[in-house]
Design a protein around this nucleic acid. Structure first.
Lengths: 120, 120
DNA sequence: ACGATAGGTGACTGTTTAGTCACCTGTCAA
DNA sequence: TTGACAGGTGACTAAACAGTCACCTATCGT
């Protein structure tokens, strides 16, 4: 029995965005992204220095999740490895997903306000 | 030992967005949001009809998570309860968070492409 | 008042996921 | 070549979460 089945036919243009959402859901991973904003192309140990509260393995695992979501791109540089932030998935998410919700429903929210006021 | 501590001083203007990210991370909850897009202001049982694979309690729990993230607004209507989609947190997320990442780093990505090509 | 229906609550269970560890591989400098 | 350093892997443990349940409260039609 699948736990997170599609439930209805086509839920949305989802699926591909799921890994991105899940990767973004963790504050630690967003902090990692922030660290790459400050200085892009950092190595693993460089990132570890910025996060003394996290072990190297913790950083590595979160980085792996971000990489699987295509939010960071890695590049070997001798014996170190550089990590670059890739904003493309975030941009796609904003374009396709957020636009789908935010635009048509700011109006709908206003309608709700009226409905609530009338009932209250 | 805190597991998800702030790690560095100020990670970002995060914190308030965490619940929104976490709520959006689940595909089931996004499907619930989609159902409200199709027909806003549905009752719990109405929503349950749209998700026969989920029990009433499952729908209710997900709805509670969405409500705590302020993504759905509820309104009592006699013995039923209407659920309205609130796009404001999504819009805020797009404005403050995504803009912060997506805009300055599409350029940075291009730089990365050059770096990768030169190394390869 | 009565039963039926809509919604709500608390505790329990199984799965997932984050965090940690010992150990391994590859690269650089001497 | 050899030691030191940067990164990687697999298994293990603990906490978080989704899913489920029996039971409860409130409202409607009669």
């Amino acid at each position: 029995m699948t736990k997170q089945s599609p439930i209805v036919g086509n839920v949305s243009s989802d699926g591909a965005f799921d890994v991105v959402f899940k990767a973004l859901a963790d504050p630690t991973r967003r902090a990692l992204l922030d660290a790459l904003v400050v200085a892009d192309g950092q190595s693993l140990s460089g990132l570890c220095d910025r996060f003394p509260e996290m072990t190297r393995f913790g950083v590595m695992k979160h980085l792996a999740v971000l990489a699987s979501a295509n939010l960071v791109i890695t590049q070997r540089d001798g014996r170190s490895k550089r990590h670059f932030l890739n904003a493309v998935p975030i941009q796609q998410l904003a374009d396709r997903w957020i636009g789908k919700y935010a635009q048509p429903f700011t109006r709908s929210l206003v309608d709700l306000k009226h409905a609530v006021e009338q009932t209250a």
